[in-house]
């Protein structure tokens, strides 16, 4: 299998991670009658199923790439979270938040290419 596929899978993993965070946040913003339902509701269950899928995907990715690329795998979701939290949660998208995310993207490019 072409090793470049494993690098392409990193943003895929990051996007699924970001989406699962949005689901968790939607769950956390709700009021529940019992603490158990904070953990056992559709948002949380689907989110953690995504998480398990991401864990398996990351193990698959790590079979071909160095552990240090975990930096990319775990920084890229921040960018996806910003986009998804704006679109889905209607959270504020400030200039500083955009600038911060641009720096993160620049950092990921430096990390990967240099």
């Amino acid at each position: 299998m072409n090793d470049s596929l494993f690098y392409i899978l990193m943003p895929v993993s990051a996007f699924i991670t970001a989406a699962s965070q949005i689901l968790l946040k939607k769950s956390a913003d709700r009021q529940y009658q019992h603490v158990l339902f904070e953990y056992l509701n559709p948002y949380v269950v689907i989110s953690y199923l995504c998480y398990i899928g991401v864990l398996a995907l990351n193990v698959f990715i790590y079979t071909k790439i160095d552990y240090r690329f975990g930096v990319v795998i775990n920084s890229l979701p921040v960018v996806f979270v910003m986009i998804l939290s704006k679109v889905i949660l209607k959270e504020a998208l400030t200039r500083k938040r955009i600038a911060g995310n641009l720096l993160i993207v620049a950092g990921i490019i430096c990390f990967t290419l240099l």
Binding site: V78, A99, N101, A106, G107, I108, C110, F111, T112
Partner: peptide, 13 residues
């Protein structure tokens, strides 16, 4: 590049 990239990422944060 890894170190510079990480510094950029932390700066972004």
């Amino acid at each position: 590049g890894n170190i510079i990239g990480t510094i950029f990422i932390i700066a972004g944060i």
